[in-house]
Amino acid sequence: LHIEINVNGLRIELHNVSEELAERIREILEKVDDREEARRLAEELIK
């Protein structure tokens, strides 16, 4: 499954994740104000 999410102008592509996991990642990242911090957090979440 390939999912693309957009959060605060940051486009993140997720591969091989469930829709539920992608939604949780999006919800978490929406709470982060700083774009660079959101990017770093996204990288950690999808490892």
Score class of each variant (00 low, 15 high):
residue 30 E to M: 13
residue 36 E to D: 13
residue 23 E to R: 14
residue 23 E to V: 12
residue 4 E to I: 15
residue 26 R to S: 05
residue 25 I to P: 00
residue 35 R to E: 13
residue 9 G to V: 00
residue 15 H to P: 02
residue 32 V to A: 10
residue 20 E to S: 10
residue 19 E to T: 13
residue 7 V to R: 01
residue 29 L to P: 00
residue 47 K to G: 13
residue 30 E to G: 11
residue 34 D to P: 04
residue 46 I to M: 10
residue 18 S to W: 04
residue 40 R to L: 10
residue 4 E to N: 07
residue 24 R to C: 05
residue 36 E to P: 05
residue 34 D to A: 06
residue 22 A to C: 06
residue 10 L to G: 10
residue 47 K to H: 11
residue 27 E to V: 11
residue 41 L to C: 06
residue 3 I to E: 02
residue 24 R to L: 10
residue 12 I to E: 01
residue 23 E to S: 12
residue 22 A to G: 05
residue 37 E to T: 11
residue 4 E to H: 09
residue 45 L to R: 01
residue 22 A to V: 15
residue 22 A to F: 09
residue 16 N to V: 08
residue 17 V to T: 08
residue 27 E to W: 02
residue 44 E to C: 10
residue 38 A to D: 01
residue 7 V to Y: 02
residue 43 E to I: 08
residue 37 E to Y: 04
residue 25 I to N: 00
residue 32 V to E: 08
residue 3 I to A: 03
residue 42 A to L: 14
residue 28 I to C: 06
residue 4 E to F: 02
residue 43 E to N: 08
residue 29 L to M: 09
residue 37 E to I: 09
residue 15 H to I: 10
residue 13 E to R: 14
residue 23 E to I: 13
residue 10 L to S: 14
residue 36 E to M: 07
residue 16 N to C: 07
residue 9 G to K: 00
residue 31 K to P: 03
residue 45 L to T: 08
residue 11 R to K: 14
residue 38 A to I: 14
residue 2 H to D: 06
residue 14 L to W: 02
residue 4 E to V: 15
residue 32 V to Y: 12
residue 40 R to S: 10
residue 33 D to F: 14
residue 41 L to V: 11
residue 39 R to K: 13
residue 25 I to Q: 00
residue 39 R to E: 08
residue 5 I to A: 00
residue 27 E to L: 12
residue 23 E to L: 10
residue 30 E to P: 01
residue 27 E to R: 14
residue 36 E to R: 06
residue 13 E to S: 12
residue 16 N to Q: 06
residue 21 L to Q: 13
residue 21 L to E: 12
residue 6 N to T: 07
residue 31 K to Q: 14
residue 43 E to Y: 04
residue 29 L to V: 08
residue 1 L to G: 13
residue 32 V to F: 12
residue 39 R to A: 13
residue 47 K to P: 07
residue 30 E to S: 13
residue 46 I to C: 09
residue 34 D to W: 08
residue 25 I to C: 02
residue 18 S to R: 04
residue 44 E to K: 07
residue 22 A to K: 04
residue 11 R to Q: 14
residue 16 N to L: 07
residue 46 I to S: 09
residue 28 I to P: 00
residue 12 I to P: 00
residue 30 E to T: 12
residue 15 H to W: 07
residue 18 S to M: 03
residue 47 K to S: 12
residue 13 E to V: 15
residue 27 E to G: 12
residue 32 V to N: 11
residue 24 R to W: 06
residue 10 L to F: 03
residue 5 I to V: 06
residue 21 L to W: 11
residue 20 E to K: 09
residue 24 R to H: 09
residue 28 I to L: 12
residue 18 S to A: 05
residue 4 E to L: 06
residue 29 L to T: 02
residue 17 V to A: 12
residue 23 E to T: 14
residue 29 L to W: 02
residue 14 L to E: 01
residue 34 D to L: 07
residue 26 R to P: 00
residue 20 E to C: 03
residue 27 E to Q: 12
residue 7 V to W: 03
residue 8 N to K: 06
residue 45 L to M: 12
residue 10 L to D: 15
residue 1 L to E: 07
residue 5 I to P: 00
residue 6 N to H: 09
residue 19 E to I: 15
residue 1 L to C: 09
residue 17 V to R: 01
residue 46 I to Q: 11
residue 8 N to L: 00
residue 35 R to S: 12
residue 1 L to Q: 10
residue 45 L to W: 05
residue 19 E to S: 13
residue 43 E to W: 03
residue 12 I to D: 01
residue 32 V to D: 04
residue 7 V to A: 05
residue 11 R to H: 15
residue 38 A to Y: 02
residue 4 E to P: 01
residue 38 A to V: 14
residue 40 R to F: 05
residue 43 E to V: 07
residue 47 K to N: 12
residue 14 L to D: 01
residue 13 E to I: 15
residue 30 E to C: 07
residue 9 G to Q: 02
residue 19 E to D: 06
residue 34 D to F: 06
residue 35 R to T: 13
residue 21 L to R: 06
residue 31 K to S: 14
residue 42 A to N: 01
residue 41 L to Q: 10
residue 43 E to G: 08
residue 11 R to T: 15
residue 43 E to D: 12
residue 18 S to C: 03
residue 31 K to V: 11
residue 25 I to E: 00
residue 26 R to V: 10
residue 1 L to N: 13
residue 30 E to L: 14
residue 46 I to Y: 03
residue 30 E to A: 09
residue 35 R to M: 15
residue 36 E to C: 07
residue 12 I to L: 08
residue 10 L to K: 15
residue 32 V to M: 10
residue 23 E to N: 14
residue 13 E to F: 11
residue 13 E to P: 03
residue 30 E to R: 09
residue 37 E to K: 11
residue 1 L to P: 08
residue 43 E to S: 04
residue 45 L to A: 12
residue 3 I to N: 02
residue 23 E to G: 13
residue 47 K to Q: 12
residue 31 K to G: 13
residue 36 E to K: 09
residue 16 N to I: 06
residue 1 L to T: 11
residue 23 E to D: 13
residue 13 E to K: 13
residue 27 E to H: 13
residue 4 E to A: 08
residue 14 L to C: 03
residue 33 D to V: 13
residue 28 I to A: 14
residue 16 N to A: 07
residue 41 L to F: 06
residue 5 I to T: 01
residue 38 A to P: 02
residue 13 E to N: 08
residue 32 V to P: 03
residue 12 I to V: 08
residue 31 K to N: 13
residue 12 I to S: 00
residue 36 E to S: 07
residue 20 E to I: 08
residue 41 L to D: 02
residue 13 E to D: 04
residue 36 E to T: 10
residue 17 V to D: 02
residue 18 S to G: 09
residue 39 R to Q: 12
residue 14 L to T: 01
residue 44 E to Q: 12
residue 15 H to K: 05
residue 4 E to R: 01
residue 16 N to F: 10
residue 6 N to L: 11
residue 41 L to H: 06
residue 32 V to H: 12
residue 44 E to F: 03
residue 40 R to D: 06
residue 27 E to A: 12
residue 21 L to C: 05
residue 4 E to W: 01
residue 40 R to Y: 04
residue 42 A to P: 01
residue 24 R to D: 03
residue 45 L to I: 13
residue 2 H to G: 04
residue 40 R to A: 11
residue 45 L to F: 09
residue 31 K to M: 10
residue 36 E to Q: 09
residue 15 H to N: 05
residue 45 L to K: 02
residue 7 V to P: 01
residue 5 I to F: 01
residue 44 E to G: 10
residue 43 E to R: 03
residue 12 I to T: 01
residue 17 V to G: 11
residue 11 R to M: 15
residue 9 G to L: 00
residue 19 E to W: 15
residue 5 I to M: 03
residue 47 K to M: 10
residue 8 N to W: 00
residue 11 R to I: 15
residue 29 L to I: 07
residue 38 A to K: 03
residue 14 L to F: 06
residue 47 K to E: 11
residue 33 D to I: 14
residue 5 I to H: 00
residue 28 I to D: 01
residue 18 S to V: 04
residue 1 L to V: 12
residue 14 L to Y: 03
residue 25 I to Y: 02
residue 17 V to P: 05
residue 16 N to S: 05
residue 3 I to G: 02
residue 25 I to V: 14
residue 29 L to R: 00
residue 6 N to A: 02
residue 1 L to W: 01
residue 42 A to D: 01
residue 14 L to N: 00
residue 13 E to L: 15
residue 39 R to S: 11
residue 30 E to Q: 12
residue 42 A to Q: 02
residue 20 E to L: 09
residue 29 L to N: 01
residue 46 I to H: 04
residue 28 I to G: 02
residue 23 E to P: 03
residue 4 E to Q: 09
residue 28 I to T: 08
residue 44 E to L: 09
residue 22 A to Y: 10
